[in-house]
């Protein structure tokens, strides 16, 4: 498993991307809320989130999707993400460790494109978010 790749020929079917541990800290989510939006209590305050019926504060879905994009760019800095589709299966909890893993599922050599399946799991190895991405790489 290479830490980084630069071009299409560096990629093989089944290649695993380096796992990425996103920053799910309350401090980071509050910063996201301040500058980007999604600063409501369910995202930035554990007690407020519990009052809404959640086990604690949750990561905004748009931030989870951003984690997936960052993971791809860390692995393939020359890649252009063309499409990224994200399914929110369950909340990603603030202040809890999560891991993002990815695997190459298809390579279209004619278009220099690679398809990747990406998953965010919690410490119990439960899937919280699933994504698929199509990226384009230099030949």
């Amino acid at each position: 498993m290479a830490d980084q790749i630069a071009k299409l020929t560096d990629v093989e079917f089944g290649t695993e991307l380096p796992a990425f541990d996103p920053d799910t800290s309350l401090e980071n989510v509050r910063r996201f809320g301040k500058y980007v939006g999604w600063g409501g209590g369910r995202f930035t305050d554990h007690e407020a989130a519990r009052k809404e019926g959640f086990p604690g504060a949750i990561i905004p879905g748009v931030m989870s999707q951003g984690f997936l994009g960052a993971m791809i760019h860390r692995w393939a800095p020359t890649a252009q993400i063309k499409i990224i589709d994200t399914i929110f299966r369950a909340p990603v909890m603030v202040d809890q460790p999560h891991k993002i893993t990815g695997v190459v599922t298809n390579i279209e050599e004619d278009d220099n494109e690679v398809e990747i399946d990406i998953t965010i799991t919690n410490e119990a190895n439960e899937t919280r978010v699933q994504g698929t991405a199509t990226i384009q790489l230099p030949a």
Binding site: N28, R31, F32, Y35, V36, M63, F67, G69, A70, H73
Partner: peptide, 9 residues
């Protein structure tokens, strides 16, 4: 800021 919070390098 979005990029930094999401972990873009």
């Amino acid at each position: 800021e979005y990029s930094k919070a999401c972990g873009e390098l």
